[in-house]
């Protein structure tokens, strides 16, 4: 059974912009899928829809449950979305509180919360950030902490919106390791073809709100395809 399915997902922004025009895709447990496409292709919009932030037409199911306003609370903890802009993600005052927010709401006892927080922060190389103010972090640091807030929830599916943007080479490498090691399924929107090549088993190319290619990572070796979709 697929972990996530999207059927004819169509989204039009309130200002009339057609961002998604009937997207179909399935993601299976443990799969790492790269989501490629030009600026404005609809990658972020798609991830927002899949996480239940935006409400598109069409159907989205997670582990067989159809995503709706009634089921979002139940599905929410299973799907972790890393926003493209970490300022949307970090809302508590200190890093510890922010990362602890999710686990606390899951109703875990304090010692488990603390354990998850320190594990998640250690994973993103931010172990000593706990008492820092989230709004005083640099962009790359915010991005890493934002990732930690999601890892601490231990979701089954990670939706990552440009996880490597603004990371220094060292952090980028570490992030690739995290992605490769985590057992969860991931859908990763990115312009970083090298990352897609390194960690993804499957590639989806989005163009003007439509899936125009969906296949194994070998697609990235197909120069004419990449040229056709202006990815190189």
């Amino acid at each position: 059974m697929p972990l996530l399915t999207a059927t004819e997902v169509t989204y039009t922004y309130p200002d009339g912009r057609h961002a998604l025009q009937g997207v179909n895709l399935k993601i299976y447990p443990g799969e790492k899928v790269g989501l490629l496409g030009l600026n404005g292709a609809g990658k972020s919009t798609l991830l927002l829809c899949l996480a239940g932030v935006l409400w598109p037409r069409g159907e989205i199911t997670v582990q067989g449950v159809s995503l709706s306003r009634q089921t979002r609370r139940q599905i929410g903890p299973k799907v972790g979305l890393l926003f493209q802009d970490p300022n949307d993600q970090l809302f508590m005052t200190t890093v510890f509180e922010d990362v602890a927010f999710g686990p606390q709401n899951l109703g875990l006892p304090l010692n488990q919360v603390e354990e998850r927080v320190s594990q998640a922060l250690a994973m993103v190389g931010a172990a000593d950030f706990t008492q820092r103010f989230t709004h005083h972090l640099s962009f790359g640091e915010k991005k890493r902490v934002a990732l930690a807030t999601i890892l601490a929830m231990e979701p089954d599916l990670l939706l990552l919106d440009e996880p490597t943007s603004n990371l220094d080479p060292k952090r980028r490498r570490e992030l690739l390791d995290i992605i490769a090691q985590r057992p969860q399924a991931m859908l990763i929107a990115t312009h970083d073809l090298a990352m897609a090549q390194a960690v993804c088993s499957r590639i989806i190319i989005l163009e003007q709100g439509l899936v125009v290619a969906d296949g194994s990572t070998d697609l990235l070796n197909d120069e004419s395809l990449l040229q056709k979709h202006e990815l190189i």
Binding site: V53, V79, L81, F101, N105, T149, M153
Partner: peptide, 8 residues
Amino acid sequence: VAMQLRGF
């Protein structure tokens, strides 16, 4: 929404 997604 980000808060709700984390169970707020």
